[in-house]
């Protein structure tokens, strides 16, 4: 197993392969700033909830701006997206709940679809044309994902985008995702 590249995003910092990326904004606005600087051509981003925006930006930086895409053998094209967190889709669940409060009942279908944590894996799969496995786990801590990844890719040639993608409040989130290559 080899970690090809790694990204860590907090509401105030972005670190890609050990290098800090300078950002001006913080929290949700920082994700928009990163979108404008590094993506710019995918307006669907603005429809996404914060969890999906976080995972989308992390995947984008990992796959397109980490040097991984310079490999000519395409071994860095992921065939799986395996993510986990502690709070599932709670931030967006609360946003949806606000649309069905008593006395103000206007359920929003576009918010409802994001009340599942695995939607972020779908957004990444669509963007990067990944028809392999997408999965989302709810775990106590990031280390609990390790045995799941190990058993998923046991003895198989594979490249996966994997890690932690958590958002509990609009401006409280944490992503630590890796592009991992198994070639044992």
């Amino acid at each position: 197993m080899k970690v090809e590249s790694q990204i860590e995003i907090t509401p105030t910092s972005v670190v890609l392969n050990g290098q800090a990326i300078a950002v001006e904004a913080t929290g949700e606005k920082m994700l928009v700033e990163l979108y404008r600087r590094f993506v710019g051509d995918y307006p669907k981003f603005f429809k996404m909830d914060t969890l999906s925006r976080l995972g989308f930006i992390a995947a984008e930086l990992l796959l397109k701006h980490s040097g991984a895409s310079e490999h000519s053998d395409k071994s860095c094209q992921p065939t799986a997206v395996i993510l986990a967190n502690r709070s599932a889709s709670i931030k967006n669940d609360r946003d949806y709940l606000a649309t069905i409060s008593e006395g103000n009942y206007y359920p929003s279908p576009s918010l409802f679809v994001y009340t599942l944590p695995n939607i972020v894996t779908g957004e990444i799969a669509i963007r990067h044309h990944i028809q392999g496995e997408t999965a989302f786990y709810i775990l106590e801590k990031p280390e609990d994902l390790e045995p799941i990844l190990l058993s998923t890719f046991n003895f198989k040639l594979s490249t996966a985008l994997a890690g932690w993608c958590e958002c509990s409040e609009p401006n409280s989130f944490y992503a630590k995702m890796q592009l991992i290559i198994w070639n044992n």
Partner: peptide, 9 residues
């Protein structure tokens, strides 16, 4: 053991 939750819609 820490339990695993699978939430894949």
């Amino acid at each position: 053991n820490p339990p695993i939750v699978v939430s894949n819609a």
